[in-house]
Simulated scan of single mutants.
Amino acid sequence: MITYEFKAKGKLEQYLKIDEAIRICQFIRNKAIIFWMDNPGVKLFEISRSSATLAKEFELASKLNSQARQAATERASFSISRFYENCKSGKPGKKGYPRFQKRNRSVEYKQTGWKLSKDRKSINFTDKNDIGSLKLIGTYDLHYYQTNQIKRVRIIRRSDGYYVQFAIVAERNIDIRPTGKTIGLDVGLSAFYTDSQGNKVENPCYLRKSEKALKRLQRRVSKKKKGSRNRKRAINRLGRKHLKVSRQRKDFAIKMALCVVKYNDFVAFEKLQVRNMVKNHHLAKSISDAAWSQFTEWLEYLGKVYGRIVVGVPPQYTSQNCSNCGAFVKKSLSVRTHVCQCGCFLDRDYNAAINILDKALKQTGYQLASTVGHRSTFNASGEKILCSDLATSVSKIAR
C-alpha cells in the first residue's frame, strides 16, 4: 500500500463543508462506541451495520457517503478490537478502553463518493455534503495508477490547511543488492544513535531549538480573549509552529532509517518502552524530541520494503555488560564511558551498540566473536562466515 498526499485548494465555503463532514464522521464514530457500550457482547460486524441505521435516524449522518459512514464505524471497531487484544495479551498498565473523540481531524472515503478529473489534478466529492471539486497541489503523478487501485481517499485538516491522501494498492519494485554489512544501533539523547562501528549521528533537537518561539506564541494565545478571532489566529500560528517541528522530526527519522537500511543487510536495534520512559519528567521532553519510536517503526517498515533483516532486542544490560568479555560493569546513567577489568575502554553507547548486534545475531542463530584487532562472524556450528558470503547467510535466516 502506497500513500500519496496532496495539498487541497478550494473556497472558504468548501472548507466549511469539509469541517462539517469531519464532524459527521466523529458523530458516527462516537455513536458506534455508544452502541457497543449499550449492547455487551455485540459482534464487530454489527457495529459496522449501525452506520445504515444512523443514516435513517439522523438527517445529519445521511449527508455523508455510505462507505464513508462505514469507514467511521470501522474506526470504532478498530479501537474496540485493539482493547480486546490488549486484555487477552495481558498488556501491563492501561488497556486502551475506547474513548469518545473530541477533536477529529479527518474523514475517509472508500471507492465511492469521489471522482478524479481526467488530468488527475483535481478531485470532486459527490455525496450530499456538497464539498465539490478541490484542486490537488503536489508532485506525485496519479496517472501511473488505475482508479480501482485507489482504495481509500482521506481529507485531513491541519493547522496550515487541508490535505487529500490517496491509499493506493501497488507493488514496489526496488533493486536490492546485498552489501555484506551488519550494524547494531543504540539510540540516545546526546547522539541520535551510535552504531556498532563507533559512528555517531548527532541529535537535531528540533523542539529544543524552537522552544523559544513556541513559548512566545503560547504567551500570545493566553493574552487573547477567549472566543475571539484574535485568539483563533494565535492558536493557528502556534499550531503551525508545532506542525513544522513534528514534520522536521519525522523527515529526519525517515532519512536516517532509509540510510541505515539501504547500506546494511542486517540491522539490530533495542526495543525501548518509550511510553514508560517518558514518565521520568526530567527527561520526558528530550525523549519525545528524539523520536525513537518513529525511527524504529520506519526501520522495520523499510526493512520489509528493501528485503533487509531488522531485529529488535530487549535493552536489558546492553549498557552494563562488557562487549569484550561479557562481564557485568554497573554504572549510572551519568557515566558515559565503559571501563572493564579486561582492559576494554569504550564509549558507553558504542559498547551498547556492539552488545545489541551480538544479541540480535544470537536470536537469529548467529553469534559474533571478538578477537584482537578485528571482529569475525560465526554461525551456530562455529564455522567462520566471510563478508562475501554474509548476504547469502542472511537470506537463509529470512527463509
Rank of each mutant, 00 (worst) to 15 (best):
N124L: 14
Y109V: 01
I397N: 05
P92N: 10
D186P: 02
S222F: 03
D195F: 08
E300A: 14
L283V: 11
H281Q: 13
H143R: 14
K285C: 03
L185G: 07
Q248C: 10
Y140M: 03
K135R: 15
L207I: 08
T53K: 15
L333E: 02
A61W: 01
R23C: 02
I34M: 02
L116R: 01
I137H: 11
K359E: 08
Q197H: 14
E300C: 09
S334N: 12
R177M: 03
A8V: 00
V245I: 15
R233Y: 04
S210A: 14
P40K: 13
I47A: 07
S77F: 00
G96K: 09
K110N: 11
L272A: 07
K56C: 02
Y193H: 12
A234Q: 09
N280Q: 11
P178Y: 11
T318C: 12
V372E: 12
G326N: 12
F58S: 13
W292A: 00
V313Q: 11
I168Y: 00
R220G: 12
L207H: 14
A360K: 01
I150Y: 02
D251R: 05
Y145T: 01
L214Q: 03
Q70P: 08
L142F: 02
N199E: 12
R247S: 13
F378L: 15
Y163I: 00
K304A: 11
K226T: 04
S228L: 14
Y193L: 12
D160Q: 05
T337N: 10
S106Y: 07
N39G: 08
R308V: 12
K102P: 03
E202F: 06
L346W: 11
K215I: 04
I174S: 08
A68K: 00
V42R: 03
G303K: 06
S196C: 10
K56T: 07
A213F: 01
R157S: 07
Q70A: 13
K250F: 09
E46K: 15
G343M: 10
V335G: 02
P314R: 04
I287H: 04
E270P: 02
R240V: 04
S122W: 06
R120V: 00
I183H: 00
K11C: 07
S117Q: 07
K330V: 03
A369T: 10
Y306G: 06
R247T: 09
D289G: 13
N203T: 05
F27V: 05
F58T: 04
N39I: 02
L142K: 00
S395K: 13
E270T: 01
K121I: 06
S79A: 14
F45E: 04
D160S: 12
V310S: 06
P315R: 04
F269C: 03
D141T: 07
S288W: 01
L283S: 07
Y301Q: 10
N104G: 13
S395M: 10
K128R: 15
Q320L: 08
R158L: 05
K244W: 06
E85M: 08
A167K: 10
F27H: 12
